[in-house]
């Protein structure tokens, strides 16, 4: 059902965990639906210095979370905001059609974390 890449990211997820002093945190999904992701970001000089995740969900949810941390790390805020759900799925060698909608939330979680970061920055001005 899943590509080799998805299984690799599911079995060996990259960047699992929390960032205690994160500059932005984004949570999307709902445990009722079976998927809940939180992405933590650390920003330095407008770049994502560190990205971590925690996910409750199916194999696709875990693999996309892991992939988004790899895609986003080192990118500028503007570049990270351009990463789409499609990019995540493509980087994983595709996802089963049924999972494209429900479990492919990682890009949204990243964007939510960036929004949170921007909001905090505004508030501190």
């Amino acid at each position: 059902m899943y590509s080799e890449k998805v299984m690799d990211h599911f079995m060996n997820p990259r960047n699992v965990g929390e960032i205690p002093d994160a500059d932005g945190v984004g949570t999307v999904g709902n445990p009722v639906c079976g998927d809940l992701m939180t992405v933590y970001i650390k920003v330095k000089d407008n770049r994502l210095e560190d990205v971590k995740f925690k996910t409750f969900g199916c194999g696709a949810a875990i693999a996309t979370s892991s992939m988004i941390t790899e895609l986003a790390k080192g990118k500028t805020i503007e570049e990270a905001l351009r990463i789409t759900r499609g990019d995540v799925a493509d980087s994983l060698g595709g996802l089963p059609p049924i999972k494209m909608h429900c479990s492919n939330l990682a890009a949204d979680a990243l964007h939510a974390a960036i929004k949170d970061y921007v909001k905090r920055k505004e508030a501190n001005k």
Partner: peptide, 24 residues
């Protein structure tokens, strides 16, 4: 705290086939 399909996948990698009531 965890979801059934990921449990199935994890067990499948170890050679155990089971099913789940999960929506996924």
């Amino acid at each position: 705290y965890i979801e059934g399909e990921s449990l199935i996948l994890g067990l499948d990698m170890l050679g155990i086939q089971v099913s789940s009531g999960s929506a996924c």
